[in-house]
C-alpha cells in the first residue's frame, strides 16, 4: 500500500453522504467549529499538517539542517581562522593526521570482520529455528547483553580483561602467559570489536529469527525429507530464502559498528594504546570536545557521513538484488 496519495481531501475515504452525517453529528456535539466538514473545514483540512508538523520540524531543524551546517562548516577554519573559508584545508589535514588514518584503517578492519559479525547470529538463529533443545532459553540469554549500555559492557570487560584480571588468571592456570588485552596496540582493536560483537549479536539474532518466520517451512521439510544435511539446508534453503534479512543485518551491523562503539572506546581504551583503537566517531569527539577543533571535526564528520552513505547505497543495491532473487 502506498504511504500517501496526492488527494486534496484529508478525509479518510468517506463518501459524500456519510460525510454529511458526520458533519451534522460533529456540529451538534461541538458547535460551530466542525460544521463545514463536507468541503472539509479549514481546521480539519489542516489537521494532518498539524499532526505531522512537530515531528517534521524537530527532524529538519535538529537533524537535516545541522548536516548542511556541518558540511559548510568543514570548509572554514579553526582558532584564528575561525569563520574564514579555507577550502579543503581541513580535509588535507585529516589525510595528514596519522590518528585519522588509523581511524579509517580501523573502519577497513570492521568491514573485514563484518562477515563474522553477521555469520555468528545467523548460525545461532538457524540452530534456534531448528529447535535445538532449550532454544527458548538461548534466545533470551543471547539477547540480554544487547540491552546493556556500551558503557556498562565496557566497564565489565575492563574488570575481566585487566592485566591482573580474571581472564588472564584463567589463562595462567592453563599455562598461557598473560595478554595485555587493552594495552597492546596489535590486540586492542580486535578485543574491542570482539566485545562489541558479544554485546550486540543478540540484536541481529532477533532480526534473523523474525526473518525465519517468513521462510517457507514447506521447503525446509522437503529438504529434510530428501535427507539434506544441516550444511546443505543452510546453503540451499536458508541463505537464498533469507537473502533480504542477511543484507539488512549486514548493513545495520555495519552502521552499528560505525556509530555505536563510542561508549566502548571511551571506557575501555580512550582510543589508545598509541591511538590504535581510534574510529571516526571517537576522532570527531576528541577534535570537537578536547582539542577545540570544531571545523576539523566537521570535516571528519563529513567523511563519516560519506562512508555511511556508501553503506546505505550498498544496502539499497543488495536489497534490490536480493528482492530480485525471491
Amino acid at each position: 500500500m502506498p504511504i500517501g496519495n496526492a488527494q486534496p481531501s484529508v478525509r479518510p475515504v468517506p463518501s459524500g453522504r456519510t460525510d454529511g452525517a458526520a458533519a451534522e453529528a460533529g456540529g451538534r456535539r461541538r458547535g460551530a467549529g466542525s460544521r463545514h466538514l463536507r468541503g472539509g473545514s479549514r481546521a480539519e483540512r489542516l489537521a494532518p499538517y498539524v499532526l505531522v508538523a512537530p515531528a517534521i520540524l524537530i527532524i529538519v531543524v535538529l537533524r537535516l539542517y545541522p548536516l548542511l551546517l556541518g558540511v559548510n562548516f568543514s570548509f572554514t577554519g579553526d582558532g584564528e581562522r575561525n569563520g574564514t573559508t579555507v577550502g579543503i584545508d581541513n580535509y588535507l589535514e585529516l589525510l595528514d593526521d596519522s590518528l585519522f588514518r588509523t581511524a579509517l584503517g580501523n573502519v577497513g578492519l570492521l568491514v573485514l570482520l563484518l562477515p563474522v559479525a553477521v555469520a555468528i547470529p545467523g548460525l545461532l538463529a538457524t540452530f534456534i529455528y531448528l529447535r535445538v533443545p532449550g532454544h527458548r532459553f538461548y534466545r533470551s540469554v543471547y539477547f540480554f547483553p544487547a540491552v546493556l549500555s556500551p558503557v556498562i559492557v565496557g566497564a565489565i570487560f575492563n574488570l575481566l580483561l585487566a592485566f591482573d584480571g580474571p581472564v588472564n588468571a584463567v589463562l595462567g592456570a592453563v599455562g598461557i602467559s598473560p595478554v595485555d588485552w587493552l594495552g597492546n596496540p596489535d590486540v586492542a582493536m580486535f578485543v574491542v570489536v570482539g566485545v562489541h560483537i558479544w554485546a550486540t549479536f543478540g540484536m541481529a539474532l532477533v532480526v534473523f529469527l523474525a526473518g525465519f518466520a517468513t521462510l517457507d517451512a514447506a521447503l525446509l521439510d522437503a529438504a529434510r525429507v530428501d535427507g539434506a544435511s544441516l550444511v546443505q539446508v543452510i546453503r540451499h534453503v536458508i541463505i537464498p530464502g533469507l537473502s533480504r534479512t542477511i543484507a539488512f543485518v549486514a548493513v545495520t551491523t555495519m552502521v552499528g559498528m560505525l556509530t555505536s562503539m563510542f561508549g566502548l572506546l571511551y571506557v575501555m581504551t580512550s582510543g589508545g594504546p598509541e591511538g590504535s583503537t581510534y574510529l571516526p566517531e571517537y576522532y570527531i569527539w576528541i577534535q570537537q570536545g578536547q582539542m577545540n577543533r570544531p571545523a576539523l571535526a566537521s570535516a571528519a564528520s563529513t567523511v563519516l557521513f560519506v562512508i555511511m552513505l556508501v553503506v546505505g547505497l550498498l544496502q539499497v543495491k543488495l536489497l534490490r538484488r536480493a528482492g530480485g532473487e525471491d
Binding site: 496519495n5 551546517l69 555511511m308
Partner: peptide, 23 residues
Amino acid sequence: SSALFLGCLAGLFVPFQVIMVPL
C-alpha cells in the same frame, strides 16, 4: 504526505556523530 514521510525517514541516515559539532 509522502514527501513528509520521506523527510522523516531521511533523519534515519544522519547519525549523531555526523552532526555533533553543528548541533
